[in-house]
Write a protein that binds this DNA or RNA. Sequence first.
DNA 1: TTTTGAGTTGTTCGA
DNA 2: GTCGAACAACTCAAA
Length: 473
Amino acid sequence: MKKISIHWFRNDLRINDNPSLKFAAENGKVIPIFIHDTVNNAQKEFNIGEASAWWLHYSLDALNKSLDEKVNFFSGDPFKIIKLLIKNYDIESVSWNRCYSPWEIKRDTEIKTYLKESNIKVSTFNSSLLWEPWEVLKDDNSPYKVFSPFYKKGCLKNHPGPRKVVKKIENIVLNDKVVESLDIKSLDLLPNHHWKDKLGQHWNIGEAAAMDKYIKFRDSGLLDYKQGRNFPAKENVSMLSPHIHFGEISPHQIWFDSKVLAPEKDIVHFHSELGWREFSYYLIYHFPHMCTENLNKQFDKFPWQINTAFLKAWQQGKTGYPIVDAGMRELWETGYMHNRVRMIVASFLVKNLLIDWRVGLEWFNNCLCDSDLANNTASWQWTAGSGADAAPYFRIFNPILQGKKFDPDGSYTKKYVPELKHLPKKYLFEPWEADHTILTESGIDYGVNYPKPIVSIAHSRDIALHAFEKIKK
DNA sequence: TTTTGAGTTGTTCGA
DNA sequence: GTCGAACAACTCAAA
């Protein structure tokens, strides 16, 4: 009888460059499984958001199709489900690619221990990080807290480099689906409102779509990445984040392939953006408490405001600051937001509305298709000033200047805030400067069909600066 | 061992 | 209009 191996799919929803799947395939018959974990991520910060769940549904569907509809789906506690499988089937080995969130590490370690004790071969592999977090340390063996030395010295200089992309799997023999498994629909991942129909217009999901998008980016957007990436109306960003999050494409496939063609400066910069993703994972690995708490304890004393009216205005894109509103509406419309605009809206929430970064993180987590605990945590803390290598507290984005500088012709802003599309460029980022006639001619009933600013930038900035000054003492 | 300079993404103020 | 300094405090790395 042929040996049976389980490959446990998690954030590696692809066939190519999948070390664990390859290992299982070379070991005998494969039972590929995916478990919607409804137990270990019960904390709301770690729960999969609605947009991500929507994406996951279709990503799993694409994966299942490419594996002859033989992926076994489960919902519940992975420990119990794996226990059940090794009891009911003659399983010789179980393998998976490593995950790095604190709750995933804890869960996987427990399962690994149990399997070893049960004399089942268990193997884990690297699939989603270019540098394992425990391999990059300072000379005194403590973790880096600053990006540049982490990346330049720790990763690029002192490390042999990322693993190579694994060779294509020649032949994979799939076991018939096990009777205990569910169909995808039973995982109940799709949100039950119409939002999902909207998201579907913007994305192609799955491994093949991810590769297509990468190739398109490599051959066009990457060619002026360093400059162009800052302008939300330009197509110079890869838009790969949700694909990478779910592992439809690996950073390794991207890292090695993108080393050709484009100008050196653009490739170096694009690689360093992958480096930032590594740094986020690195930080939550070494400082797991930062997923829920300020990394810098001084911020525990910060007087965050609870203001549901402000929060709602921010969420709905009705703050009265056009670039902020455009970003928040892009998020709601597409499940994505351009990186530059993410910084602007995050800075606005934290430093002008004085709302706790965790509240912003929760909204992002629910609305972003690419929501990722590591990136979300590290980036929000960076913006708030409470994180590692954080933005200095006095670095507060001005949404008027940012709009003028990075959306100079206003096309991004007008796309998502169409009620301002006839407003002359001069006033687009500060409608209050336009007189009544201009507003009327532009079809704006100011304060009615487009809101007046909910806070004064200058005043709220001063309040924030004073609050930051206070917590330092 | 100690010192020194540098460090993703910005804004404001005053010369 | 343009430009440099100031806006902190701390980590890291090189000298």
